[in-house]
């Protein structure tokens, strides 16, 4: 029982270190002089590594805890519409405001993402509460929110100019290359705190597996736990969207596959999710660095890999629902 847990965690941690080093040393062999190398390292590769690590970790951990809180193994910030809510507000802010006021946008964008993420999380929580037990209905509601956000963004295409169009692709498909230290200085700590907070709640989240009454009898106030966890994950996902746009599938697949290996104990599962999410996005970063695919939207890669895996899991009946 103990053995695979330490093994998996070890392998994931090693992968994170390995891939970060790989990304950092992209330009090493190129015969560039030292100052240029250091400049690229600190201004390009390092923000890339930090973005990939934090975004991957926060998306996977938030999905893991959302699945417990919403009592739904299919919950994922992407699928239930949290990322698209955040993206929509950010894109709308970018396009609807005059280009001259770009500077405050650095602070405005994260705020917009937080607002969008919180609003869609609140909405989905209301739906989940109303349709207690109907797991599929929550997913459908999430799809409705995503579709609506997508449609509104498509309308924004109509009124957007060429520069804004590029930005829209970013908000729809995600990218790890938009982040610089300025943006990261706002969103980074939020993501870090969000992951940290959710990890501290892991033991209490275990109690929610048996439902709210069981959690209460085990010694935690469920409404409080649920509210705080939702808030933490919404803020974390909002921050992730503000630096990397919307990235699909990480949250759905990472907790699901890790549960098959390390089990359901969130004290083990959530840290493993953080490592695995980080490793996957670092892998994507490594791939696009070495294959020179910088313009590739992240969601394209994660969806290319994740879509078939999702279908496979569904086909094998791993998401049997009683509802």
């Amino acid at each position: 029982m103990k053995h695979p847990i330490t093994l998996v965690t070890g392998v994931l941690a090693a992968l994170v270190v390995l891939l970060s080093t790989a990304v950092l040393l992209t330009d090493w062999q190129a015969d560039v002089d030292n100052t240029l190398f250091w400049h690229m390292l600190t201004q390009l590769q390092l923000p890339l590594v930090v973005t990939a690590t934090l975004v991957g970790a926060v998306l996977a951990v938030s999905a893991g805890s959302l699945q417990v809180v919403l009592q739904n193994p299919l919950a994922d910030p992407g699928i239930i519409g949290i990322t698209s809510g955040a993206s929509l507000i950010a894109a709308a802010l970018l396009i609807l405001q005059p280009v001259q006021t770009v500077i405050p946008a650095v602070y405005l964008l994260p705020l917009g993402c937080f607002a969008g993420a919180l609003a869609s999380t609140w909405l989905i929580y209301r739906v989940a509460k109303r349709l207690r037990g109907a797991a599929m209905a929550v997913i459908l509601a999430g799809i409705a929110i995503s579709t609506l956000a997508g449609a509104v963004m498509a309308w924004l295409y109509v009124i957007a100019d060429a520069q804004a169009l590029r930005n829209l692709t970013f908000w729809l498909m995600g990218s790890l290359y938009q982040a610089d230290w300025l943006v990261l200085s706002v969103a980074g700590p939020v993501m870090l705190l969000s992951v940290g907070y959710q990890l501290t709640q892991a033991r209490r989240l275990n109690w929610l597996y048996g439902g709210e009454a069981m959690a209460a009898s085990a010694g935690v106030s469920p409404p409080q736990l649920i509210r705080r966890t939702l808030l933490a994950s919404a803020l974390g996902v909002g921050a992730a969207v503000s630096v990397a746009g919307s990235i699909a599938f990480i949250g759905l697949l990472v907790p699901h596959f890790l549960r098959q290996i390390v089990g359901y104990n969130n004290v083990v599962l959530l840290p493993a999710c953080a490592l695995c999410g980080a490793a996957i996005l670092l892998g994507v970063a490594t791939l696009s660095e070495y294959l020179h695919l910088v313009t590739l939207p992240v969601s394209m890669i994660t969806a290319t890999l994740g879509g078939p895996l999702l279908l496979l899991a569904l086909y094998k009946g791993q998401w049997k629902q009683h509802a």
Partner: peptide, 11 residues
């Protein structure tokens, strides 16, 4: 409590 259906396959 009276029965509650769990959505997860926990051992």
């Amino acid at each position: 409590a009276q029965q509650y259906t769990l959505p997860f396959d926990i051992p």
